[in-house]
Design a protein around this nucleic acid. Sequence first.
DNA 1: CGTATTTGACCCGCGC
DNA 2: GCGCGGGTCAAATACG
Length: 149
Amino acid sequence: MEERCQVLFPCSSSDHGVDKRTWCAAQPTTTSSLSDQKMKNKEEGKPKSRKKKEREAKFAFQTRSQVDILDDGYRWRKYGQKAVKNNLFPRSYYKCTQEGCRVKKQVQRLSGDEGVVVTTYQGAHTHPVDKPSDNFHHILTQMHIFPPF
DNA sequence: CGTATTTGACCCGCGC
DNA sequence: GCGCGGGTCAAATACG
């Protein structure tokens, strides 16, 4: 099956006032220190390990595809799904199954444009891709993005 | 039986 | 201070 994913446009700040600016949050600003550590343990307050939490590079792009999950060659494990406001379709959260690789990605299908899927990547992989996908590489090329993917 | 997905609970930052 | 919106965990379930 060849899911033809046509990249529409990356999330650039040079918008024309479209309602797609919410995805451009790739700013390294210390927006908020995510508590990626154990948050469940409220018993232990461990006030340590409070370092600067610089945000990982995050970039998003939209594609026109029939399937939500684009095959970029990596293996992802779904760890969450939440419904966002102003969107009829839920947003899916994925994590790279590679050990030590904390790359996250979220997929969101736009309501209104059912064929449009927004994919947001966060972080860089520590391991090379095992199953290269020419399709995904083509998308990155169109976006002028060439990370160590 | 091991691994991935599902799904509700939980947590946190922010706006009011 | 509280409620909302968004992000993550983890137990249960599905699937090979």
